[in-house]
Computed example of a mutant assay.
Amino acid sequence: MTETFVIARPQELRTEMVRVWESVKALVDGEQEAVQLSVKKMSKRSAEANSLMWVRLHELAEQTDWHGIKLSPEEFKDLLSAGLAKSKVVPNIDGTGFVIIGQRTSKFSVKQMNELIELIHAFGAERGVRFSADPRLIGRKAA
């Protein structure tokens, strides 16, 4: 049996470590031959975080606008990730607008992705967006 525990934010440390302890204790109590525990720093965002980001961006797009303009989830991603990363903005080649240069959320670190998700939550909360339950919490026991 293999379990993976991801601690993405400092405030999750205690809760996740309790879950790790409970899981390891169950294995030891079950008289397994050996238990191996590995800890590694994740440098790339997880698929779980990516999924949560898109759920939240769709909720934003459905429930709010930006200065009276309805934006798609992709456009909200561009807007919010550019604000987070302080991206470079240049005039469009035909001079009718602007383009955000060099912003790729696929290259975000775990920390950057968590900051983006927190920014999405704050941005939505300021505009009265009602977010669904955090899908990462479904099925977890309360600690």
Rank of each mutant, 00 (worst) to 15 (best):
I93E: 15
D134V: 09
S132L: 06
K86I: 13
Q112P: 01
F98L: 13
Q112C: 02
A125T: 12
Q63V: 04
K88F: 11
L119R: 08
L116T: 02
R140C: 06
L119S: 08
E126Y: 00
L116C: 02
S106M: 13
P91S: 11
V89R: 11
H58I: 01
V129P: 01
E59Q: 15
V110M: 10
G97A: 07
L71H: 09
L119A: 11
F108G: 01
A85Q: 14
P73R: 07
K111M: 09
H121P: 00
G97E: 09
H58Q: 13
A122C: 03
E118F: 07
G139T: 04
S72H: 10
E74K: 14
S87T: 15
M113K: 00
I138N: 06
I117M: 08
L79H: 03
K141W: 08
D94N: 14
V55R: 07
E74C: 07
I120P: 00
L71K: 07
I100F: 12
E75F: 04
V129Q: 04
K70R: 15
G68R: 00
V110N: 02
G128L: 06
K141Y: 10
S132Y: 02
L119W: 04
Q103C: 13
G95T: 09
S109I: 03
L84R: 09
L71P: 06
K77W: 03
L80H: 00
K107A: 14
R56P: 01
L80D: 00
N114L: 10
E115A: 12
F108D: 01
A82S: 15
K88Y: 13
T105R: 09
V110H: 00
D65S: 14
A85N: 10
H121E: 15
V90G: 08
F131R: 06
L71C: 08
D65L: 02
Q63P: 05
A82Q: 09
E59I: 05
K77S: 13
G95H: 06
T64V: 02
T64R: 01
L119K: 08
E59Y: 04
L57D: 04
H58E: 14
L57C: 07
G124L: 00
I101K: 15
L80R: 01
L79A: 06
V90N: 10
R136L: 12
R127P: 02
L119T: 10
I138W: 00
S72Q: 13
F131Q: 05
D134Q: 07
F76P: 00
F98D: 11
E74T: 15
R140T: 12
G128N: 09
R56L: 12
I69Q: 14
I138H: 06
V89A: 12
V110F: 01
S81C: 08
